[in-house]
Write a protein that binds this DNA or RNA. Structure first.
Length: 122
DNA sequence: CTTCTGACGAAAT
DNA sequence: CATTTCGCCAGAA
């Protein structure tokens, strides 16, 4: 196992269900020591392998950041049922991923206590 | 080994 | 609302 952040980040992104989105900062929030910036780095570096639903990661405003695949990202999301508002932003109240369950976080190597605190209840 | 660069976000001003 | 500052991984040349 790499002790790097990238593996954990990509693993978490893979947990985002279709039709939902998560922000870079949100993903970072589940991984202590990881910042929103690093999530972007992780996807830019390894998100093109084909086994990561990178299109489900948007910025904090619910919009798509300026990168080469931006247009395709939006197209893919709309295909999954995600709606974009007039400002080109997604309503995270409606399509935002609530988060992983505690078991998934523990499986990724987080301390059970931390996992329980970060995981979405219920 | 060094240098470069790439998908962000919160807080202060 | 806009602009600025700081945080700091990993792969390629």
């Amino acid at each position: 196992m790499k002790d790097g952040k990238t593996e954990a980040i990509l693993g978490l992104v893979r947990m985002i269900p279709p039709g939902q989105v998560a922000s870079y900062g949100q993903i970072a929030g589940y991984l202590p020591g990881v910042t929103a910036r690093l999530v972007g780095f992780a996807l830019a570096g390894s998100g093109r392998r084909g086994d990561v639903p990178w299109q489900r990661v948007v910025n904090g405003a619910g919009g798509i950041s300026g990168h080469a695949g931006g247009a395709e990202q939006r197209r893919r999301l709309e295909e999954e049922g995600v709606e974009f508002g007039s400002s080109g932003r997604v309503d995270r109240k409606k399509f935002g991923w609530r988060g992983p369950d505690a078991a998934s976080l523990v499986a990724m190597g987080l301390d059970p206590e931390v996992a329980l605190m970060l995981a979405q209840p219920g």
